[in-house]
Amino acid sequence: MDLVIYRLPDMAQALAETLAMIGVAIPLAVLIGTPIGIWLFLHAPSGIKPTPKTHAVVSGIVNTIRSFPFLILLIAILPFTQFVVGTTVGTAAAIVPLTINAIPYFARLVEQNITQLGSGAVEASRAMGATRGQIIRNVLLVDAKPAIIGSITITTVSFISYSAMVGIVGGGGIGEFAIRYGYYRYETSVMLAAIVVMIVLVTAVQWGGTRISRMTDKRIAA
């Protein structure tokens, strides 16, 4: 226990690094991934404006990046990371692969969220003369809001786990803290404390995301 207390300042710093990674990567994923997800829905073969060939290309790129093992992606894009942030180690460097991996991950979730709404509301809006932009803003995004918030929660939880992997290449965060002290220095109690911190963080994100999603769900509010 004394050892854990002694390591608390380092653990706090590691937690701050993890929060910084997620605090940048997830908003960027939402900002960029949401329009990509909407585009995938609109231009699908059964979408509002189908472009099957272009959709197949974009969908293939999304699937390729999304399914790429994160640790391999992390190493493979080290030259790009160096170009973007000027370094391949530390928190800033870890944000680059996290963001690149999170964007297609979230885009696919958004596409699924909107697809699950069905075509009824869209057809009704088109019959009333709504433009494509109005349908997106006032129908699709409004009705899919609870599901999209749920997807943000899922993405955040998943990438908290991914952020632990960047510790292997000196990316900082709780993952590197656990590896540095729990594995290399055999400080098992410190590693267990780091695991508890991760569990608490994930639980808090999941609870908060679920609560916000339920608050925005008109079906539950009714």
Rank of each mutant, 00 (worst) to 15 (best):
V89S: 08
N138I: 11
S125D: 07
K218T: 14
I136L: 03
G47P: 06
S158G: 11
L71A: 09
L42G: 03
V24E: 03
S189P: 06
T203F: 13
V190K: 02
V57H: 01
A124W: 10
W207Q: 05
V84T: 12
W39P: 07
G171K: 05
A121R: 11
Y184T: 11
W207G: 02
V197A: 10
T203E: 04
A127G: 10
L71Y: 10
V96E: 03
A124Q: 11
K53D: 09
P50K: 02
V84K: 08
G47Y: 03
G90I: 12
L31Y: 07
G150L: 10
Q116W: 08
V58C: 01
V200N: 03
K53A: 13
E187Y: 08
A222N: 08
A221E: 11
I199S: 01
A102L: 07
I160C: 00
D10S: 14
I154H: 05
A20G: 00
L109S: 05
A124D: 05
G133V: 12
T203R: 00
I75K: 00
I5T: 13
R132A: 13
V58I: 15
D217K: 02
P69D: 06
S46F: 13
Y6G: 10
W207I: 15
P50M: 11
I32C: 07
S151P: 00
A76I: 13
M198I: 14
I136H: 04
I148Q: 04
I154M: 09
Q82I: 09
I199H: 03
K218H: 10
M198E: 02
W207T: 14
P9K: 11
A56Q: 10
D143T: 12
V205F: 00
G90C: 04
L78H: 08
A124V: 14
G173C: 05
I36T: 01
A221T: 13
V122N: 01
F80V: 15
I149W: 08
T34Q: 07
A204W: 03
G150E: 05
V58W: 03
T153Y: 02
G172D: 04
E176S: 04
L117F: 11
Q206C: 00
D10E: 13
M191A: 15
R7L: 10
F159W: 06
G33H: 10
S161M: 10
G60F: 09
L109K: 00
T87C: 01
A204D: 06
S189Q: 09
A144P: 01
M191N: 09
P79L: 01
V84I: 15
V139Y: 04
T153R: 02
A164V: 11
R126Q: 14
Y184C: 02
I26A: 03
G133A: 01
A204P: 01
G33Q: 05
I48S: 03
R214N: 11
G172I: 13
H55F: 12
I61H: 03
T188Y: 12
Q13C: 04
T210L: 12
R126W: 10
I149L: 14
V190L: 06
L15E: 09
V110Q: 04
T210N: 14
G208L: 13
V166Y: 00
P45M: 07
G118Q: 08
V142F: 10
L192S: 02
G133T: 14
I114T: 00
L78R: 08
